[in-house]
Amino acid sequence: MTSPSQAAADAGDLTLEPEGEPGTPGNKGTPELAGRTPRQLAWLRFKRDRVGVICAFVVGFFILVAAAAPLIVKLYGKNAYDLYGQDDGLLNSSGIPIKPNGGISSDHWFGVEPALGRDVLALLVYGIRTSLLIALAVTVISVATGVLFGLTQGYLSGKTDYFMGRLSDFMLAFPQQLFFIAFSPVAISLLVNPGEQESWWVRPFVLISVQFILGWMSIGRLVRAQVLSLREREFVEAARISGASSWRIISKELLPNLWSTILVQATLLLPVFVTAEAGLSFLGVGILDPTPDWGLMFQTGANNYQSDITFMFFPGIAMVIFVVAFNLLGDSVRDALDPKTLR
């Protein structure tokens, strides 16, 4: 080991340039790398990930379809409620489309629904809209709650951490599907007086609530773990020495380091909630006919798959593409944000 005094090369020239300074001779090849914010760096990494970019386009397309559903349906000229099959005589006596391939024609591009005879394209576009909106609401509320819970737990630590931790363990111990199936009817009956007509918001509200109640723990635990490691970091101590309040430490020092976790978790949670919502509607405890819904389309498809298999293809393929694309996107976002996870 050399002593620092021996190694004191040039004490007078203390000014140093950061590596990769643009315009410095010697690293002309990579002037691109200098002066990027962490966000720009993540964006650069993401752009280089071809799968991620394609998935982003696919996901963007689904979101666009959901958002622009009324416009699409208007341009297309059919809506999701008219019973075209029955009105125009496109169904046979047992309710199966007469034309081959589920009744696909120039009028009804994806065919008509068995039994009721609604237009499949309009139904799918609106179904995606319903499912996506519900899943989005669940995601936003769950993530917000989870982050708040995890932050409090990790920051306060000690007894608070212990009891909050046991609460989230308790919630995690519930069998999710059983809970949804058992409690959705209970919740609905609590909200609707016997004999009264159910308001339109009751079912979406119940779906959002039951999924949220069992949906926030995973992100809460992740945030807690990250906060526990972050709060021991020296930059937090530096802020504390300067007299920073807890609020400032949480908002200025901790939260900016959590955004990547939050974003990644949200992109991974959303498809989970979409499939869960579809599952519940399929099982009959979610959205009911005639509201167009992705899960309900599976139900109709399952009832008629022997005579009209084509109908199943559209919601099925759409769902597979959506879930796969969203999950791959989540992975790409994570790779872009934390190439070596959080250092």
């Binding site: 962490p38 020495i241 020092e253």
Partner: peptide
């Protein structure tokens, strides 16, 4: 923390690990 406020600015610290002592997001 409140009682320390007036002298907070007078005592500062330099840390051992230069990689952990600066917030990477600021």
């Amino acid at each position: 923390r409140k009682e320390l406020a007036p002298i907070r600015s007078e005592i500062q610290m330099i840390f051992q690990d230069p990689y952990a002592s600066l917030n990477p997001r600021q």
